[in-house]
């Protein structure tokens, strides 16, 4: 129901952030998210940053995926 894309915050000014997704940059409102700063990754939905991405949790999920699949990342390429 809700498209949300991870992007990196380039700058925050007056409650609006510039978010970078692979070189495409879009402004996103920070009205729904507290404490996110430059270089944080956030999920952008409908022009708003709705949550920060937790880098450690992401690593943990990737590790669980590696375990479940039995395919280690270094085997991939």
């Amino acid at each position: 129901m809700c498209l949300g894309i991870p992007g990196r915050i380039i700058e925050v000014k007056d409650g609006m952030a510039v978010v970078d997704v692979a070189g495409a940059r879009k402004t996103a409102s920070m009205a729904l998210l507290e404490g996110a700063v430059k270089d944080d990754y956030v999920i952008v939905h409908a022009g708003f940053a709705i949550e920060r991405i937790d880098a450690e949790k992401a690593e943990e999920t990737l590790r669980l995926i590696s375990e479940a699949s039995g395919v280690q990342v270094n085997e991939i390429h």
């Binding site: 498209l3 894309i5 992007g7 970078d20 997704v21 692979a22 070189g23 495409a24 879009k26 952008v44």
Partner: peptide, 12 residues
């Protein structure tokens, strides 16, 4: 191009 992929992700 990466930027094209990025823009596509953002807009669906």
């Amino acid at each position: 191009k990466n930027e094209v992929r990025g823009a596509c992700e953002l807009l669906g």
